[in-house]
Design a protein around this nucleic acid. Structure first.
Lengths: 297, 297
DNA sequence: TTACTTTGATAGGCTTTACTTATCATGGAG
DNA sequence: CTCCATGATAAGTAAAGCCTATCAAAGTAA
């Protein structure tokens, strides 16, 4: 049984005339006769009762065509769904990003994305740059949104990064802290401060460590967490200071003071990172959408 | 898209290994790679993500295989149903017979037949021999059960008849009729009787007319009907006499006397008549069943 | 590191098959 | 009785699917 034979049988059942059916199928009549004959031979059943004057469909033929129609319909549905996948209108994209970004910035974007592309499922994986980039390389993550410049994968030829926006990293201190009144500070001023850090592996902690090393000290760590709200709360309680994204510091939450770093503000380059090579259509759709959304923001 | 490709994709999805899948499909690995590649090219979507070390199925691939399984299942169901038709386990048989046979004799048989072959639908067409035999020739009737010997089609090479059983035709008279006490009569004795007949075209009326002509008279007809119960009732009321099947006369009903015809009992040869040539499998099943049932009766 | 192994892709040749045109057989219509 | 419509059959051709041989890449073992 071949799909061809299903289609041919359907045509004959509709026209009840081999010549006309063949014409509709854009083949010669003998080809049609051969195929139907072969089909009947294979099934062991006559599907059409044909005299020289007229063609009648048998009960078996009716049943066969009923099945054939279902199959051809299902096939069309398959093709349509595949086209949706091919066009990037359907699929699944695993987005890896920082918990903070996932919590504060992404939701609005994803809402708009889902409205535009309801067929694409977004899976969020929250974590630290290194883990997510490893996942990206392995294929378990499709898009990484974050800062790659300080990561061990910086400059890796396997990735393609495009800048999304710049986020300043500031030092946050509790409201009662001596530095709370200032708006800037030099990095050396915090060499003896206790630090609350994001768990090692995070890009912010990486930046902090690099900057401290360049300034000739090792930060004294008193607390660490993966959760940005936890870090901020600890700082607000005066238990330490932290390097923190300004955008996140401006969000409503426990009261902290934000201080830019002098003489050069420390920036974080938020990028959209993908694997080089052919991305899945849905990944392309997502990336295109995000690029667009950021342009207008 | 070809069924082959659906099956191949299913195999690859199951094994997630082209070499093993090819082995399971009993083809060489390159053939499989070619088919999957062709399928993906046609659909414009990657169904499997393959590195030299492992094969992974994509979301599109998963969706495709889901469809493919449905299609292949439907195809198997089709084949199975066609096999049922081919084996005569499924189908529709149009049985043409006399109203009397349809009412009194067939129901028990059909009940047993349906129990044995629930997939075969029986359509009953009740009528007179000539009409039903015309239908049989035209194809609108598959089996005729009745007496062909007196019909205009007797000896027709287009039909094949096999005897089922012999049914005696007797004269029935009302209980108060002068002849009611006898058990036999010669045909000449009823030359002046008023007759209740089955509507012209019925085989019994044909027999009556032939017998009367041979005896040198024309029956005087006072009533005619297609319905055997009506005929019997009219006779019971004394409105006339009739030629009637003995089996039917023995059934419970209005009281009539049954008289065999002398010197030679008049028999009706109930036959099972089919068109010559290849009958449909379900027709064969029905005919075989009926032959069997009659043998043991 | 180097050689080996596994696995999917590619190339070239062969075989199957589905298509084409030409022709026949049959039965109803004018 | 001839003609026409229609499906079946025959023979040749072109496409495509499969096979064997071979390559390329990447992980594994020595």
């Amino acid at each position: 049984m071949e799909l061809r034979q299903l289609r041919y049988a359907m045509a004959v059942a509709q026209k009840l005339n081999f010549t006309q059916a063949a014409e509709a199928l854009a083949i010669a009549q003998p080809a049609l006769s051969q195929q139907i004959a072969g089909l009947e031979r294979e099934l062991g059943v006559r599907l059409f009762e044909r005299t020289n004057r007229k063609v009648e469909i048998t009960d078996a033929g009716r049943a066969f065509v009923r099945h054939a129609e279902r199959i051809i319909d299902e096939l069309a549905a398959t093709a349509e769904e595949m086209t949706a996948y091919a066009g990037g209108l359907r699929g699944r994209v695993v987005v890896g990003t920082y918990q903070s970004f996932a919590e504060y910035t992404l939701p609005k974007l994803l809402g708009r994305f889902h409205a535009s592309f309801p067929g694409i499922e977004i899976a969020l994986r929250e974590g630290m740059a290194d883990d997510l980039l490893a996942g990206l390389r392995a294929g378990s993550v499709d898009v990484f949104i974050g800062d790659i410049t300080e990561s061990q994968y910086a400059g890796d030829r396997a990735f393609r990064a495009e800048g999304l926006y710049e986020d300043e990293l500031v030092v946050i201190v509790g409201a009662g802290h001596p530095l709370a009144r200032a708006s800037t500070l030099r990095i050396e001023e915090v060499r003896d401060e206790p630090f609350v850090i994001f768990r090692p592996g995070s890009s912010i902690t990486g930046r902090l460590m690099t900057a401290a090393r360049n300034a000739g000290f090792r930060p004294r760590v008193v607390f660490e967490s993966v959760d940005s709200l936890t870090v901020r709360s600890l700082v607000a309680e005066g238990l330490g200071i932290a390097l923190f994204p300004r955008t996140l510091g401006n969000m409503p939450g426990p009261n902290v003071a934000l201080l830019s770093i002098d003489p050069q503000r420390m920036m974080r380059h938020m990028s959209l990172v993908t694997r080089v090579g052919e991305p899945s259509p849905s990944t392309r759709t997502f990336v295109d959408f995000l690029r667009d959304a950021m342009e207008y923001a």
